[in-house]
Amino acid sequence: MATLVIAEHNNAALGAATFNTVAAAQAIGGDIHLLVAGSNCAAVAEATARVAGVSKVLVADQAAYAHQLPENLAPLVAALGRDYSHLLAAATTNGKDLLPRVAALLDVEQISEIVKVLAPDTFQRPIYAGNALATVQSSAAIKVITVRGTGFDAVAGEGGSASIEAVKGGSDAGLSRFVGEEIARSERPELTGAKIVVSGGRGMQSGDNFQLLYRVADKLGAAVGASRAAVDAGFVPNDMQVGQTGKIVAPQLYIAVGISGAIQHLAGMKDSKVIVAINKDEEAPIFQVADYGLVGDLFEIVPELERQL
């Protein structure tokens, strides 16, 4: 039994979600190999070889893999995957884009977003926006799985000494081409890995008012998120959305400001250790999951909070 984990990276650095995925592979048991497919990604391969618990790193370094286009990458992963009992990727947008295409090429079903490994063939995963937890057992020859990071504590990024082996990839499939990207740059921690998250909702009223949250976040070393309502209203960009179909977070402290607490939002943050809700509507559903609630005008409360921190 051996697991192949698809490393999440941008050709320069290894993505943090990889560490949680390796933790899931450890819970399954057996040898753990990592695949680094990219372009000019030697530095990532070296970093990957140092991840605790990894015994081998496969590197496919060629131009066709520069942007992780699934049309080019899926045939490679499917070809390599035939030698493994388990194929894992993080449930990031890259992993979600790639892995089902791999599963279908292998003619096996995929199990999405597991949060717990109960046995090498049995897993737990949330369904219905996290309102139910399903325990599923797979008899597929190769178990193809995406891993929700919040379910597994990250392994150490240092301490391992895996061998590195180059693998030959295929050529460009000629189906798709990378045109460009707009990546948000932020000095704040990454939303999915942050210890503290401050999120704003429709109650923030405008994008400018998010400055209030940024100031509190900077005092706490926190990441800033948003509800779907705030993103749909154009206050902030999509990469800040926390919820069923956005990012799933489980920080030590989640501060929800002007967020009513729709089911879809709760699905993305209800596993946080401590939840604080600040809302003027005392009937807002967010108070039903909050450890500490503060009813009142956020435009008075948030600046006051900034002063007292």
Binding site: V108, T122, A134, S138, I275, Y292, G293
Partner: peptide
């Protein structure tokens, strides 16, 4: 299908906590 659902259960529920009166009390509790 090769996937069998063995069990579906409700997730652990969070119970509502307390309502604090002021920012000072909130910061103190945190």
């Amino acid at each position: 299908s090769t996937v069998k659902t063995l069990k579906v259960e409700a997730p652990a529920t969070r119970s509502a906590g307390i309502i604090v009166k002021s920012v000072a009390e909130l910061v103190e509790k945190l």
